[in-house]
Write a protein that binds this DNA or RNA. Structure first.
Lengths: 253, 253
DNA sequence: TGGGATTTGTTCGTATGTATT
DNA sequence: GAATACATACGAACAAATCCC
């Protein structure tokens, strides 16, 4: 198993409350959580990487207590794996878990589509269209910008339902998808086709819930196929070697 | 706003790792989390109740740190409300949040039904039927037993999908529904009609995904109507008074 | 196999912020 | 409106477990 090097100074130090005379009203724990979350999603911290409480805390300028608290929450969200007495790692989802996450995400976003169909205000529709135009512009460069924008489109939709819980679940599933694509996806799959986003907006506008749900479902299915099932020679050493385990029972964990 | 009395010794002391020579491989933090979670769901800790780190920790035999960690996770799940510098309360969902939770739950369980239709093994079907028979037996007594069994039926279904994420989300939504019914539900609404569960099993067996999803949807809708919209004279003082707020903007929070 | 270095699990003290009189 | 009392936010230090040679 390829053990990654230590994270050391892989991420930027966060704004320390002490420096800004005004101690933020938000507990620093929250800030630590957000910083780590972002670092994982943006792959500054790579899947499977060990996360020593000590060095992380040092980098962020906080003590282990806050780091631990953040780990707990990230573990609930499935971004961090927490093994008793053995610390934390960035999660390394199996292909099976990946399937689960994508399935649930599809279901959730179908809900979003159904919820929004025919209830989009003019302003909201305009906002979505503006967003798609941004995506179009960024489409040329295959940088992370393009991927970020694609993801944001879906988050925006979830926001517009006004259902806080639905939003949280979509965000969570979406984060985990980022992790998964980082492991199993091919390098620069431009995740979402702009045209599919456009069609979706049209269906929502027309108030066709069935069509909107179907489009969303198909769209997300396409994302998976494009990014995941695509040939990627060196899929991952673990999966390649899995069928060749020395002999069942010898590798208990 | 009616401030509840302190929880003091409202809950049973948890099994302390030190007593059982074998220190559980699971950190105590996890145990604290589970104990609190259960206490909230079973309404030993009532909605809105203040949760002082100190007394809770004392009752459970751990220090404040572990209690704080548990609070963080429970807050993510929406069972605890966490206000910066002002500590924790058992969540007190608004009617709007309640609607959100029920909507998402309906969507999630529809997924479960679709997922399971036609894929139920004989053993699984038998297990579900055995469970329904238990429900039937408990139906006479309107005790908490009946409510617990109704809930478990839905959890069992989610388990059978084999999708861990879907299971977690259903569990979470389900927990929050308990909270909500504790606030807004009428006392002994026997939550789920046994016959509806039977019909559902039948549809799953027949492999009729559309019908199964529709039945599930309708079933959960019924639960809400039966329990929530039912006349409960003294709904809650907050909601009764909400429309009579002194003047908009004066109550910032 | 064993022992030392490292890392995690937990407690508790201090400073800061909030409610109360 | 200021002083007091109390609860929370955070960190340092100790104890136990694990890792690595």
């Amino acid at each position: 198993m390829p053990r990654p090097t230590r994270p050391s100074r892989a991420n930027k130090p966060m704004t320390n409350g002490k420096e800004t005379g005004t101690r933020g009203p938000v507990p620093r724990a929250q800030a630590v959580y957000k910083a780590l979350r972002r670092a994982i999603i943006e792959q500054a911290l790579k899947p499977g990487m060990k996360l020593p409480e000590d060095s992380i805390g040092e980098q962020l300028g906080v003590s282990r207590t806050l780091v631990r608290e953040a780990f707990g929450r990230l573990a609930v969200e499935g971004l961090v794996e927490l093994k008793p007495n053995r610390g934390a790692n960035v999660a390394y989802p199996t292909l099976e878990e990946a399937r689960d996450v994508f399935d649930v995400r599809r279901g959730l976003e179908r809900l979003v589509a159904e919820n929004l169909a025919g209830r989009l205000t003019a302003a909201q529709a305009a906002e979505l269209e503006a967003h798609v135009r941004l995506e179009e512009k960024a489409h040329g460069q295959d940088g992370p910008e393009s991927i970020r924008l694609s993801g944001e489109f879906h988050i925006k939709l979830a926001e517009m339902t006004g259902n806080a819980l639905l939003l949280r679940y979509v965000q969570e599933a979406s984060s985990r998808c980022s992790l998964i694509l980082a492991i199993y996806g091919r390098p620069h799959s431009s995740e979402c086709a702009v045209s599919e986003h456009r069609q979706l907006i049209e269906a929502l506008r027309a108030g066709d819930a069935v069509r909107a749900a179907a489009l969303m479902d198909h769209h997300l299915q396409s994302v998976v196929t494009r990014a995941l099932l695509a040939p990627r020679a060196e899929r991952d050493i673990r999966d390649v070697l899995a069928p060749y385990a020395l002999s069942e029972g010898l590798t208990p964990s």
